[in-house]
Each structure stands twice: as C-alpha cells, then as structure tokens.
Amino acid sequence: MAPPATQKALVITEVGKPLELVTDWAVPQPGPDQVLLKVTVAGLNPHDGKTREWGLFAPKLPAVIANDVTGTVVALGPGVTKYQIGDRVVSQPEFRGNYAQNGLQEYAVNDISAGCKIPDSITDDEAASLPTNIIAPLVGLFATEHGLGIPAPWTEGAKSFDYKNTALLIIGGGSNCGKFAVQLAKLANIGTIISVGGFDEELKGFGATHVLDRHGGEEAVLERIRKVVADDLIYVFDAINPPETLVLGMKALSSTKKGRLARLLPTHPADKSTVLGKKAGFDVVDVYGSSQAQPNLAYPFWKRVPEYLTSGKLKPLNFVVKNGLTADNVNMVLDGYRDGARVTKTHIHL
C-alpha cells in the first residue's frame, strides 16, 4: 500500500515553546540513495531539548526533531538495492534542517549510508540507542580533523598504530556518549581506557581498564589520573563539559608531548589561560557527530554495525519507553532536560 500524502508530526512552531501536534504534515519522498521508513521509534537526546529551547538544529520553523530513528522500509528511492520493503532499519538523520529525516513524524526518509539494517536479534529500541550517542564519540575518537585522530580499527592506518600502548581518558564515561566511547575504544583494542565518572562494573563491562571517582575536586581527580598515565597522556575525549569546566581534561594532558582534547559541547572557545606548563602545547577540537558530515568515517562504520551488535562488540544502552506520538510525551522529556533533571534516554513509540 502506498504511503499517504500527509501524516501526524510533532513540530516546533516557536523557539522556547512546547512542541505541537499537527495532522497535515507532508510525507516526504525518498530520493536517490534514500528509503522511506514507517517510523517505529524516535529517540530523544539532550540536543533535542536545546533545539526546542534555543533553536539549536532548527534553522527554519516549523521543525521536526529527534535524530535517533528506527522504522520499517515502505518505499525505495531510485536505484536503491541495499534494502527491501519490510526491512527494519536504524537511521541517523542529518542535522542541517532537513526535517524529512527526523523521527517525530509517522514517516521519515533515511540516507541509506547513514544507518543499517537491524539484525533479527536486536530490537528497534536497542538499535535506537545508537545513532546520536555512538556517532559523536566515533567522530571524537577517530576523525582526523574534528577528533583525536586515532585510526579507526578498519582503516589502513590501523595496521601500524600502536593501540596496545595507547592511553585514552574519557571524561563523562557515565554519559551515553561516554559509554559508547568506552566501547569504541575497546573495539579498537586501546590498551588503557580510563573513565572519569560512571559505574565501575558497567564501564569495565564495556571495556574500561580504569574507572575513577569524579569527586573530591579537580586536583584530587588529576592525581588519580596521573597515577594511571603519569605525564604521558595525549588523548582526551570530554563528553560532558562546557568550556567553563573543560580544564580537567586540558590539565591531564602531558606537559612534554603534544596532546589533543576532543569536546562535545563547543558553545564558545575553551579558556587555556589556567593550563600552564604544557611545553609541547595541545589542541582542543570540536566534535560534530553527524554521519553525513563525516561520510568517510561513519559510512564504513555503519556497514559494520550489524556484526558488531550480533557479536556483542557493541552493546545497546538503557532506555525507557513512552507510547504514542503525543505532545505531552515529548514535552515532558524535553522539560526534564531544560530543568536539569536526571533523564533516562527516552524512546517514543509511534
């Protein structure tokens, strides 16, 4: 049966105001290298709250949000052979205002390279825990320009890179992006994977070699880090800190070897003035976790995701479910992000 011409969708009509339900939103049409999905799960993340409150990824209004999407293929774009009608697919929409791909609507377009078929052993909810929260650390760890530049394990550069003797510090390892950063580091066989924050048993189950208490003040945490890496650390991935509190990662970097810190919250430039004694210097790079913006890295990764999931090399994260494409369901979650509440990753079932 052909998809309808219009559909239900939740839209931002005014920045700073609750989402509203509309019933006459146009159903998008898939183009080349695209398919149309009947959406089953739309996953929400903190950036969705920032989009509602600040217009972060909403260059024009009205706007549909949600960048973790799963669905069933109902139409193929011209020449598409990767999928068949009825396949279950997980998708990461782009962030550039092409709302046809986002999840809070009944039908959404998928760029076939920015996602994959969901293995039979994996539920739609498990798959929907991946896109936003795994692509950000994928770029943060492995991108050359907008990340730490560690070679992805399937690339040519991996053949000569010394993963075993490499140390990686992940600040905010207990966050969803931090948990996937640990898993990706383990996937690459990085020898020393240190998380600041998070639950010891969970993160060591994901592959962390050290899980450090984040409490007690900056100097106490630095001392814990240096007991593991001494003055040799050159790779830091910070999943949680805005510029005002980025200093821990910068100070943890080596004073004699040039280091690199990749950050997820680049709201404004990092203040390096309090970080002294770094004779070789260091770089702070801003991570943009978009599959479409990093196709040479993300698309080969998505090809491998089904095997990583079925083999257990990647483990989905926890989530809670709200049933129904209703404004109340979504606005309640986004209110929690706005108000600084502890929010478990929430999936809207359509």
Rank of each mutant, 00 (worst) to 15 (best):
K278M: 14
T81Y: 01
A298F: 00
T81R: 09
S195R: 01
V15K: 07
N331L: 11
I170C: 00
V89L: 02
N296G: 15
Y337D: 11
K204P: 03
N329E: 13
N331R: 07
V321F: 01
H349D: 04
T72E: 11
F57V: 10
D231Q: 11
S113C: 02
L309Y: 02
M332Y: 05
G140C: 12
I12Q: 01
D271I: 09
I134G: 06
I134N: 02
R260D: 11
L44R: 07
V73R: 02
T326A: 11
D125F: 13
V109F: 00
E219P: 06
K257E: 07
M250F: 08
T346H: 05
I348E: 02
L246I: 11
P78N: 02
E201D: 15
I171T: 05
G97R: 07
V139I: 15
G77T: 05
N67S: 13
V229N: 01
S311C: 04
G249H: 09
A66H: 13
L297V: 12
H268T: 06
G86Y: 04
G217K: 12
Y83S: 06
Y83T: 01
F206E: 08
A230R: 14
G97I: 07
E244C: 03
P30R: 02
G198A: 06
T209M: 03
P151I: 11
A100R: 10
Q101D: 04
L76T: 06
L350T: 08
D286E: 15
V22W: 00
H349V: 12
L19I: 07
L309P: 02
P4K: 05
F180T: 06
K345H: 15
F237G: 04
G16S: 04
P306H: 09
T132A: 13
A252M: 09
A63F: 03
G197H: 04
S255D: 15
A208I: 03
Y235G: 06
A127S: 11
K82C: 01
L169E: 03
Q29R: 14
K159T: 13
V320S: 08
R214E: 04
I190V: 14
I193F: 06
T310Y: 05
T144N: 14
I194H: 00
P300L: 07
V73I: 01
V41H: 15
P28Q: 08
K278P: 12
A341L: 14
A327P: 00
M1K: 11
A9C: 11
K272A: 05
F237W: 03
N45Q: 13
L212H: 09
S255W: 08
G289Y: 00
Y288F: 15
V39I: 10
Q292G: 01
H349A: 04
V15S: 07
T70H: 04
P4Y: 00
P46L: 11
